[in-house]
Write a protein that binds this DNA or RNA. Structure first.
Length: 780
DNA sequence: CAAAAAGTC
């Protein structure tokens, strides 16, 4: 196996045999476990105001959780890696029209250049820079799959007589599911083997969660970054692939950062796991600054001192014909951002010709809703010779129907569409018809604070790269204009690019991912940006507490199981605890976890007071006094017991149907895995099951079981009526969406802890104070 | 009294 852990330049550190019982040694460092073993659950008498994690730069927003606006297809087909001599895929069947369109793409000129770059012996990494619209995602895999190095080979592995197949397929990763599936459909048509029902053979396939279409003979496979990371768990050498194309690396998702780390390990390894067959890596970015990427892959041939100083990473830049976008800044800083936004929109509307829709970037739902109201009010006052206005909000939590409006051309004549969007419109979706962009210069960003074990979600200044991306949205269909609600000198103060996710997120999952894939020294794992030592140590400690790591920092069998479960590690720990005889509640734990990991909250927000009254009584029936965890359990159990009309059942209670369906998918998956891991002894009975409420004693057992994953996310009621967290001793409020909102309990456990305009505990359950000590001291 | 948007055999 190539991915054998520590880097060549950093020899594995010797771990001390002897160490204090209350400490673990990880990466050569001894870390005290004092904080975990000696909890002080007694809150201080005087409650100090919690320190603000960051200065809020803007007013907090008001979210409305509603249905997700995306469709899912759940067609599954078992993967077939194709045998040698299988049915030959159709060739040269490209439709003449499609080929003509392909040849018109800017990247077509670079076809042989790209092929040549990868043919050079020893040249295994190529960086490709091309803006949106260059056609790189659809064309590059098609340029490469017939190359000689891309042929499937049968090789003998060292020390084994068995012959294995290596290579033959090109993987291309995407940060989003929709991108992976739509690109696959598109490329499959271009290649002459369209994906669809009854197509057993084909050149192109895709693989995203709960949706795999990989025909026999697949040479080009689109996947999400997360899916490839899962494949890496089973096949550390990525044996089925000749090349990995990493698309949209500039977005710097946590998964892509991990992925290139593993790719670098394969490239620097001895290739024995691949029978000596090299792996080619093509990294594609839409932004020009690729120094970090180039630097990251530069020191590849460490064993080859002769070439050590030469640059092995080729960078190819694809020119892209873009429509010009005129950027207009404010002459001086604006005192009121909403006021400036409205004035700018009205000015565009009055002065700029039709057709040409407006796309405005705002920070959140509350801001969008209030702006919508004011624009609609204004629209009633305009003269009859001024075009009419149609305002479309666009944010992730908006229902499918609500989102659709923003993508459709306006039906009424002489009307301008004004789309008010969050940064969902920056990368995830494209709004057609836009000629004018208004950019407020801010976006909400999630940040993790390791010391407090909590996150914050606050509006903050965007980066130059983000501002450029927003401006570019005006030039998709013709020359456009971008109006920035800030000065040019303010723009100059922006950072070049956004902080990569790995530096803003809890790295618990990332560290477990590394450990499960054989990385002993996570501090030495190659990363483009390394999180602070404090974050990594915190994650190691947390994993140790969860039972995923030994005192030496090595992964335990429990940790390996947690890594295989497609859920966050603390929830994996809950399932493992549930399998213990004293808890014995795996089925209930899976039901709850399926519900909470199916997407945003399954309970839609009740907007109006009428809705609250209408739905209130029906929702009360499924609510439990123990809190949100038990309420989720009742919800999914009632849902599955409902046999006649699940859609109606959800509608009546304002429950997100799409997430409930996803929850059942996850439930099926987790049940199958638990059976395989022998956490349950037999397959559970088929749905529908009659609903029987869980009695309070059983509820206690289930909650105690969740404490094994969330003992640190607890708070005690102080004499003054505030809840004070165990970790950090901060005042925390129960979020209004919780069934326990406004209630006083002895102690609470929460699955999420987020600072917005206040310290909020979400997904809250009532617990007993002595459970906290009990859970903290328990070690498996 | 309320949340950005992505993602996992």
């Amino acid at each position: 196996m190539a991915a054998s852990g520590s880097n060549a330049e950093q020899p594995a550190k010797r771990r001390k045999k002897q160490q204090p019982a209350n400490a673990i040694t990880i990466g050569g460092r001894t870390i005290s476990l004092e904080a975990y073993l000696n909890p002080t659950p007694k809150p201080a008498k005087t409650i100090t105001t919690p320190a603000q994690p960051t200065a809020a730069t803007e007013k907090p927003e008001d979210p409305t959780p509603t249905e997700r606006g995306k469709k899912t297809t759940t067609t599954s087909r078992p993967e077939n890696h194709g045998r040698r001599g299988g049915p030959a895929p159709a060739r040269n069947t490209e439709d003449a029209g499609l080929l003509k369109t392909r040849k018109a793409l800017p990247i077509w000129q670079h076809r042989s250049e790209i092929q040549a770059a990868l043919r050079k012996p020893g040249s295994n990494v190529v960086v490709l820079v091309g803006e949106t619209g260059s056609g790189k995602s659809t064309q590059v895999p098609q340029f490469l799959y017939r190359e000689p190095w891309c042929r499937r080979q049968t090789v003998k592995l060292t020390g084994s007589q068995d012959e294995v197949a290596v290579g033959g397929t090109i993987a291309i990763t995407q940060p989003r599911r929709v991108a992976a599936t739509t690109l696959a459909h598109r490329v499959s048509r271009e290649a002459g083997t369209p994906l669809g029902k009854g197509q057993a053979d084909g050149l192109v396939g895709y693989s995203v969660r709960f949706d795999h279409q990989v025909p026999r003979g697949t040479k080009i496979k689109f996947l999400t970054e997360g899916t490839l990371l899962q494949e890496l768990l089973r096949d550390p050498c990525l044996r089925q692939y000749s090349a990995i194309i990493v698309d949209e690396i500039h977005e710097r998702s946590l998964d892509v950062d991990l992925l290139v780390g593993f790719l670098k390990q394969i490239l620097t390894g001895d290739l024995s796991g691949r029978g000596g067959v090299p792996l080619k890596v093509i990294v594609m970015s839409a932004t020009a600054d690729v120094d970090i990427i180039r630097g990251f892959f530069k020191d590849l041939s460490a064993d080859d001192n002769e070439h050590k100083d030469t640059d092995h990473v080729q960078v190819l830049r694809i020119k892209c014909r873009q429509y010009p976008v005129e950027v207009v800044h404010e002459p001086r800083p604006v005192p009121d951002i909403q006021d400036a936004l409205l004035k700018r929109i009205f000015k565009i509307h009055l002065e700029e010709p039709l057709p040409g829709d407006i796309l405005a970037f705002l920070t959140g739902q509350e801001e969008i809703e209030s702006a919508q109201k004011l624009i609609e009010e204004y629209a009633t006052t305009t003269a009859s010779n001024v075009p009419k206005i149609k305002v479309c909000p666009l944010y992730g939590q908006l229902s499918m129907e609500g989102q659709r409006e923003a993508f459709l051309p306006v039906k009424t004549a002489f009307t301008r569409k004004i789309v008010l969007a969050t940064n969902i419109a920056e990368t995830s979706v494209t709004v057609p018809g836009v000629r004018y962009v208004v950019d407020c210069g801010k976006a909400k960003v999630k940040k993790y604070r390791p010391r407090l074990g909590m996150e914050s979600l606050l509006a903050s200044v965007i980066s130059k790269s983000s501002a450029l991306q927003r401006a570019g949205r005006a030039g998709r269909e013709g020359a456009g204009k971008c109006f920035r609600l800030y000065t040019e000198s303010t723009f100059e103060t922006f950072q070049d690019s956004d902080l990569p996710e790995i530096l803003r997120n809890d790295v618990l999952g990332a560290v477990l991912t590394m450990k499960a894939r054989g990385i002993q020294d996570v501090l030495a794992f190659p990363l483009m940006d390394t999180p602070g030592t404090e974050s990594i140590e915190k994650a190691l400690l947390h994993l140790h507490y969860l039972g995923a790591l030994t005192d030496d920092g090595a992964i335990t069998p429990a940790g390996e199981k947690m890594a295989r479960f497609p859920i966050p590690a603390p929830l994996g720990a809950v399932i493992l605890a549930a399998a213990r005889p004293e808890f014995d509640c795996v089925m209930e734990a899976i039901d709850i976890i399926s519900c909470i990991t199916s997407g945003d909250d399954v309970f839609l927000q009740l907007q109006s007071e009428e809705a609250q009254e209408e739905v209130g009584a029906l929702r009360k029936e499924i609510q439990r006094r123990e809190g949100d965890i038990m309420t989720y359990l009742t919800t999914i159990q009632r849902y599955t017991a409902e046999n006649a009309d699940r859609i109606g059942w959800c509608k009546q209670r304002r429950i997100n149907m799409r997430n409930m369906r996803q929850a059942l998918n996850i439930r099926r998956q987790l049940r199958a895995m638990s059976l395989k891991e022998k956490l349950i002894s037999e397959a559970p009975p088929q749905d529908p099951q009659r609903f029987t409420p869980v009695d309070p004693e059983r509820a206690d057992v289930i909650l105690k079981c969740f404490m094994r994953g969330f003992a640190m996310k607890t708070a005690m009621l102080a004499p003054d009526g505030n809840y004070v967290t165990i970790q950090g001793k901060h005042v925390v409020a129960i979020h209004p969406a919780s069934v326990l909102h406004g209630q006083k309990k002895e102690a609470i456990m929460f699955l999420e802890h987020v600072f917005t305009n206040k310290n909020y505990a979400k997904k809250v359950s009532a617990i007993r104070a002595n459970w906290i000590v009990e859970a903290m001291e328990s070690r498996y």
